[in-house]
Design a protein around this nucleic acid. Structure first.
Lengths: 210, 210
DNA sequence: ACCTGAACACCGTTCAAGT
DNA sequence: ACCTGAACACCGTTCAAGT
């Protein structure tokens, strides 16, 4: 059941070099594989094959597989940040926009489960943290901080430590996203959309009796 | 740098069968490896070697590596449930006990990061969900539901849909735990303990201006 | 500079065979 | 029943060599 030749090499002349931005092509292919078939399906050999390139070609552009995954994670934070920003602006930078941000966050995670996992996958655990990855995550987080500060100014949110509030909100949306990804919600009869809407209401007014 | 023989076989007579509960021994060893060196360090060959058993012996007791990891996850939910229960009772089954539950939850995750990840690691994604695993997770979740229902009866928590409230709270503690595990907090100057305490306060009274 | 093929040291899993 | 060794089909990574 195994072909003796690469499944589908994109280049017609496999003996030519891959001119152009091979690093970028590899990153895109990695993102595609992760989105379509999950992280565990991502192999350097497979990426090289699909790109019509030797399986060791990657090492010219990334130090190892980990580095490629880190690049994937960075790209994810960049995309997430963009989508959050659009939701915030589209909702009018107030209560409405803030709720849309939460929904957009969860929607991103549900739409790209494996990619989202790579972003938060504990790659850092088994090694020192990547500087640029931390920056990208920080940029996305900063959006949340700014949105909260603006609402505090507008008298919509209590004037707690803004950073602390941002971490708290982040934990909520991240938690909703992760539970959805783990299938812990579908196993009950809820979906992520319902839960994040409930969360948006409850995080505002609290769970204690008024 | 590689020894020609197993690093440290526990049995002196490697030609004897491993009488007793090999399945249990394998599970314990797997948990130990995961706790000490992370999931990625867990190999069936290593487990067999440490237990003085062939590397294929495992297949008599688990269908494959995935099944072993599922067993690890189940064990984790059982332990977590116990610790949550003790916190709830120890805190007097009220507001105090509920906050202790949250702290105990996060403490478990931080103390067993890799184990916790296995429990929520999306093993389900790439396959059908394990029945018994779902039950164990359900048992832990039920504890939260019961605690909330009790507080609703006592007039401490608003009488929303209890299940929905429980999912919401679960998302919060899970989110705090995951952010801590991902190193997203230490990178800022907070720790999980500080955030969960802040969360306990804010989830009660909400973030909106009172 | 950039890419290659062969080789190395790992994996999980299968399977015929032993007791 | 329970366990074994050899073998298979994968991996990531290294390295001398090509252009």
């Amino acid at each position: 059941m195994r072909a003796t030749r690469p499944a589908r090499p994109l280049r017609k002349q496999p003996d030519r070099y891959h001119h152009g931005d091979l690093a970028r092509a590899m990153l895109q292919e990695a993102v595609r594989v992760i989105k379509d078939r999950g992280v565990e399906a991502l192999t350097l050999r497979g990426v090289g094959e699909t790109l019509g390139v030797s399986r060791t070609a990657l090492y010219r552009h990334f130090t190892d597989k980990q580095a490629l995954l880190t690049a994937v994670a960075r790209e994810g934070f960049r995309t997430l940040r963009t989508e959050l920003h659009e939701a915030w602006l589209g909702g009018g930078r107030g209560r409405e926009g803030f709720e849309r941000m939460g929904e957009a966050y969860v929607r991103f995670a549900v739409a790209n489960p494996s990619h989202y996992r790579v972003m938060f996958g504990g790659l850092l655990e088994s090694g020192e943290t990547d500087i640029e990855l931390g920056e990208q995550a920080g940029n996305a987080f900063q959006l949340l901080v700014d949105a909260l500060a603006e609402q505090q100014q507008a008298g919509l949110v209590r004037k707690d430590d803004t950073l602390m509030l941002a971490r708290y909100i982040w934990a909520i949306v991240h938690g909703v996203a992760m539970l959805a990804l783990d299938g812990q919600l579908q196993h009950q009869q809820t979906d992520a959309e319902t839960l994040i809407r409930f969360a948006n209401e409850r995080m505002r007014t609290g769970i204690a009796v008024s």
